[in-house]
């Protein structure tokens, strides 16, 4: 439940950008949130809505694009997403190595009214 903290950083960033762009209102925020960033989308929107009254971002909708945790299997030389509770390669059963995928927490773009 760190979404309230994340929402406050998100609001600070988005407001600064919106002001710089001369926006009247922020309509939407497009986020990339990796599985490994541990964000619950509804909790983030809920927290954001608590913080935004009387700001440029009041009522803005957060659209989340999810990226996923991946492993690399050396014997098969392939990448795979793990099944729940199991990090093994679905093809050969070897335990792969975690890749860097799924860690992002980025503001990709915003939709503003000018």
């Amino acid at each position: 439940m760190h979404e309230l903290s994340i929402a406050s950083y998100l609001l600070e960033s988005v407001e600064a950008q919106a002001q710089e762009l001369g926006a009247q209102r922020v309509l939407a925020i497009n986020l990339v949130a990796g599985e490994r960033a541990g964000i619950v989308d509804d909790a983030l929107q809920f927290s954001f809505d608590l913080l935004t009254p009387e700001t440029l971002a009041e009522g803005a909708h957060i659209n989340v694009r999810r990226t996923f945790m991946r492993f690399h299997c050396a014997p098969c030389d392939c990448e795979y997403s793990p099944k729940v509770g199991n990090f093994s390669c679905p093809d050969c059963g070897a335990v792969g190595q975690l890749t860097a995928d799924g860690t992002e927490l980025l503001i990709e773009s915003i939709e503003i009214e000018t």
């Binding site: 994340i6 926006a23 986020l31 980025l106 503001i107 990709e108 773009s109 009214e113």
Partner: peptide
């Protein structure tokens, strides 16, 4: 009044970092 889609690409936790 117009609606604009503005690309940003910024780490949300950049301030903390």
């Amino acid at each position: 009044m117009s609606v604009q889609h503005v690309k940003i690409v910024k780490n949300v936790l950049a301030g903390n970092d």
